[in-house]
């Protein structure tokens, strides 16, 4: 175990030395990886904020429950009791009289309403659910439609659906972008490690001749790829953080209008270096396998 650990530490030191020995190459590689990771990461932050913004927009997610005309008081009380049990503080009752008053207040409708012999409007409930996902809203609408005395349950969801479809499209685009840049990152690491293997061809040959195992030869290159990816991830995090700092003022103005907007969550800080490390290791693995097979 000690020997295994010692050999890993030696490999890590050699990988660090290799990165340190060619600072310009290392800097450029890290910058390329950093930018490649920043773009999709920025896309995810943008979408996340857009989602928050959409859900904070007032009146966007409402379900209207129109009650049966001439509803008995007891049935109405039962509906209120059930609503309070299921959705506490997420609903309000609009009596038919209040609805008519509102209609009268509207300039276009005042004359028409005055000519009506009686109030045609039903009592109604306006529900503003906390869970605003379109699928959750639809399920809730179906459930509410079965409450006693409910004549019609209407989900004012067209905007929500359009917005969600837009978000899904955006998410798909960002996922594709992330996949393309992940392949790009693997390719960058692949090439860097391939050059390193070529530069170390003599050392590899000698090491093989004096008893080095494949694992011993590969290990420093794996660490190189892993370090490169992880450090590229750190660069990406810094770039993203800098970008968000620059955008802080305009974002704060938006936030004042639509509620709070988020930047980078603390838990997400190690995410980019971690993803970078995994992709870097993968690129190194592919590169070393291919280069060593060709060298045999």
């Amino acid at each position: 175990m000690k020997t295994w650990l010692r050999q890993h530490l030696t490999a890590l030191r050699r990988a660090l030395r290799r990165l340190w020995r060619s600072p310009l190459n290392t800097f450029l590689s890290l910058l390329v990886i950093g930018i490649a990771m920043t773009l999709p990461a920025a896309g995810y932050v943008f979408l996340d904020n857009l989602k928050t913004l959409g859900h904070n927009a007032t009146g966007a997610q409402q379900i209207s429950l129109f009650m049966q005309p001439d509803l008995e008081r007891a049935t109405l009380q039962e509906t209120i009791r059930q609503l309070e049990a299921r959705l506490p503080d997420q609903w309000r009752f609009v009596p038919r009289e209040e609805a008519l008053e509102r209609l009268k207040a509207s300039e276009d409708m005042a004359e028409i309403v005055a000519s009506l012999p009686q109030n045609p409007l039903p009592d109604a409930f306006i529900i503003e659910p906390l869970d605003a996902r379109p699928e959750a809203l639809e399920t809730l609408r179906e459930t509410l439609a079965t409450l006693p005395g409910v004549s019609h349950a209407q989900l004012d969801s067209a905007w929500v659906k359009r917005f969600d479809a837009f978000l899904q499209l955006g998410r798909l685009a960002v996922n594709l972008l992330a996949a393309v840049f992940a392949v790009g990152l693997i390719a960058v690491t692949f090439n860097t490690i391939r050059l390193q293997v070529l530069a170390q061809a003599d050392e590899i040959e000698v090491a093989r001749l004096i008893g080095a195992t494949d694992a011993f030869i590969r290990r420093p290159f794996y660490y190189s790829g892993l370090l490169q990816g992880a450090l590229g991830g750190v660069v990406a995090t810094l770039l993203l953080f800098s970008g968000l700092t620059v955008l802080k003022t305009p974002v704060a103005q938006l936030a004042a209008l639509y509620g709070s907007l988020s930047g980078l969550a603390p838990w997400s800080l190690p995410l980019l270096p971690l993803i970078g490390a995994i992709l870097g290791w993968l690129g190194a693995q592919l590169s070393v396998s291919l280069a060593l097979r060709q060298g045999e």
Partner: peptide, 22 residues
């Protein structure tokens, strides 16, 4: 087949690194 980017001592150390000697 010596490694020219390493010192004489480092060249001799290589086989021992390979077997993982302290």
């Amino acid at each position: 087949k010596l490694l020219f980017d390493r010192s004489a001592l480092e060249n001799v150390l290589l086989p021992l690194e390979i077997i993982g000697l302290p």
